[in-house]
Amino acid sequence: MHSTLKLTVSHAPFWHNGSSISSKSRNILLASLLAVIPGCYQYGFPAVGVVTMSIASAILWELLINFISRRPISVGDGNAALIGMMLAMMMPATTPWWAVVTGTFFAVVIGKEIFGGIGANPFNPAVLAMTILMLSWGALFDFNAALLNYSFDFKAVYPLVMSKSFGASAAGSFSLMNLLQGKQIGGIGSTCGIGLILGGVYLMIRGHIRWEISISFLVGIFAAALGFNWLNPELYAGPGFHLLTGYTLIGAFFLATEDSSSPVNFIPMLLYGLFGGVLTVMVRNIGAHIDGVLYAILIINLVNPLLDKIRPKAIGKGV
């Protein structure tokens, strides 16, 4: 009965680099390890626990929803594991198990499967889940309080909290070199700048993420931070600080570039990234929240369908 060949027709434009979903997921997971391994080294076994818990529970939720909705089992494509990994990268190592499991539920079930599975989600599932968790249990994700029991050979305060409450001079007390090497506190996989950049470059070269989005996101942050810094150098930290703290790098390389929630054409991609970067810095500098990356990405995800309307004219149409 199932021998009938079904062809699906969908709208142009398309983007394909010849790889399958599972190899893409594998590659992104591999790239994220570059940032996660230093994180696990820094925070020890609790971090490994959070990462494995997150990946495992994400896969289980996907299995469960496959079973309930009587759809083919889709955990093999690795997307659920990838979502679990992304979520764990943003969490502090001390996140309790129930918060991780709730997070992966919201990411996989509410963020992705409800909308029809892979490729149909309007938001980046991991970002959506992380925002929900932060709104609910803010205290768990206050990095200063969460990582209180660790002792490091560097300053153990969350850099963005410092710049938010004490202005640019406090931000200046972090050396950019330290920030780049991951000598700052934060999420398990979001502090090690070198790892994230190397992972991002690898993915860009392999074509798994679009360089236009990542680079324009970073450019947006750089430009907006420069503008704020120029307006009031005492209050607002410089662009280097904003580029290397919080979720900036993980956002630029791993979160904003998620397939189904980002545009595919050249100009929309640039606008998408730029808008996200500028929004991030605006939330950080004049908003109520400490880090703006998550909110910025959710908002650009929302704008994405509009941006996709900017596309070349079809040949022979609308002369």
Partner: peptide
């Protein structure tokens, strides 16, 4: 049990 405040918010 930690109250899941998201549930009483609009979303």
């Amino acid at each position: 049990y930690h109250p899941f405040t998201f549930m009483v918010q609009a979303p």
